[in-house]
Design a protein around this nucleic acid. Structure first.
Ligand SMILES: [Mn+2]
Ligand SMILES: [Mn+2]
Ligand SMILES: [Zn+2]
Ligand SMILES: [Zn+2]
Lengths: 141, 141
DNA sequence: AAAATAGTTTAGAACTGTTCTAAACTATTG
DNA sequence: CAATAGTTTAGAACAGTTCTAAACTATTTT
């Protein structure tokens, strides 16, 4: 077995390319945040949680940069923002069509695949507006 | 026509009884807020909007009281809270089972009667939790 | 390889919506 | 009419987020 086949020639090339493809320079901070967000499966995380996690791992990054990055990633379609309670935004690394269970006691947020919910017989949107997204939040207690 | 049949013997008796029935004293402030909220059809309003409206009508009431009142009314089931964006809570005078159109551009929030949406094939809630409510928000642009 | 440019990061101030505090006030009860 | 318990209030405090402008860095140009 050739050990080297697991050692990428260009480290983090995938994340770097992903950033370049949305016109964001792969800076040290963005790269580290992108790896925390995008290389660990589906996550629902707040800015402050992500900042804490970065600091815990020795990544020096300011909270302002975490906010900047989360918003840039969201605009670029790498993340989406989920609002389940006033005063706190969750950022979701799952950008596919899906919905959420939200446990109001624990604050846990879990995905429901889009295929497992159907919202039918919605009325027409008013006047000149069009549907941007349908969010279903199943609140648990 | 007897004019007096439109003049209640006990003014605002309905609102007063409603407050008493949920163990809230019918104070001047609560009564005024209850009338703004409950005698004007379905409304979706923030604390600051309601406070502004009260002040405009010459009702002297503090913002703290508006928040206290909105939360008390919500606990009592007279209102419900709708979260459509982080950092701002809407209070909804329609407590029946229904959903919402939310125009992200204008901030307008409109009801969709519960009968006009059906959410089917939801998966089981995780572990020992049970469904408190299902919120559908149709985001418009 | 330097220099120029444009994009990025940062600390800290500022801001927004909301909650807290504790003193003054008021509706209800005895 | 007191006594009591609930209510209101101004202002301070708080939490999450955004802003500012100066320092820094990735990329482009020469
Ligand atoms: Mn945002
Ligand atoms: Mn609340
Ligand atoms: Zn999700
Ligand atoms: Zn409503």
């Amino acid at each position: 077995m050739d050990e080297r086949e697991n050692v990428p020639q260009r480290p983090y090339a995938e994340v770097i390319d992903r950033l370049r493809s949305v016109d964001l320079r792969p800076t040290r901070q963005r790269l580290a945040l992108a790896r925390l967000l995008l290389e660990h499966g589906d996550r629902h995380i707040t800015a402050e949680q992500l900042h804490g996690e970065a600091i815990d791992r020795g990544i020096r990054v300011s909270l302002a940069t975490v906010y900047n990055t989360l918003h840039q990633f969201t605009s670029a379609g790498l993340l989406r923002e989920v609002v389940v309670e006033a005063g706190r935004s969750y950022f979701d690394t799952n950008t596919s069509d899906h919905h959420h269970f939200y446990n109001e006691t624990t604050g846990d947020l879990h995905d429901i695949p889009g295929s497992e919910v159907s919202v039918t017989s919605l009325p027409e949107p008013p006047d000149g507006s069009s549907v941007a997204r349908v969010d279903v939040i199943v609140r648990l207690k």
